[in-house]
Design a protein around this nucleic acid. Structure first.
Lengths: 69, 69
DNA sequence: AATATATGTAAAATATATTTGACACAATAT
DNA sequence: ATATTGTGTCAAATATATTTTACATATATT
């Protein structure tokens, strides 16, 4: 899978580090790093928690269609 | 967690059984059943596969906001 | 030069998603 | 009556997400 640049951008927009996100949603820094780098396949609940923290929706960050791919 | 009635409805709209969905996305019937009944926390890739199969987006089926909750 | 923060990565352990096999029940068809 | 399809559920096994610990590099700071 490719990198999740939309996540990286949304995080940058909030000026939060990977560790900030991790602490806020209750996972480790490595998990957030792996998601951003597209290394794996997180659970939907984790995705939802990240989206809510960043003020985005699932489609904003994790859905790929014509507009963002 | 509560039941995922939006998934159940989208499936009904396509006249597909739980097993039909399961076979099409490559998981077992029990997994689809558990997701519909809100028993657990599927991976985002599985959610995406289900959405694409049903012609819906992540927000349609798995995102909870003011409109659908 | 030394310290701190942010990121990338890896191996082993643990938690949990998912499978497999099974049984039950209701509705429908033969 | 019995066979079939769709659903709900459960226990044990397997696959994989996530944690823990650790090391490396780059950048900024004192």
């Amino acid at each position: 899978m490719g990198k999740n640049l939309r996540l990286k951008a949304a995080r940058a927009a909030k000026d939060m580090s990977q560790k900030d996100i991790a602490d806020a949603v209750g996972v480790t820094r490595q998990t957030i790093n792996a998601i951003e780098n597209g290394d794996y396949n997180p659970s939907i609940n984790l995705c939802i928690a990240i989206c809510k923290l960043l003020g985005k929706t699932l489609n904003d960050i994790f859905w790929e269609d014509e507009e963002n791919e």
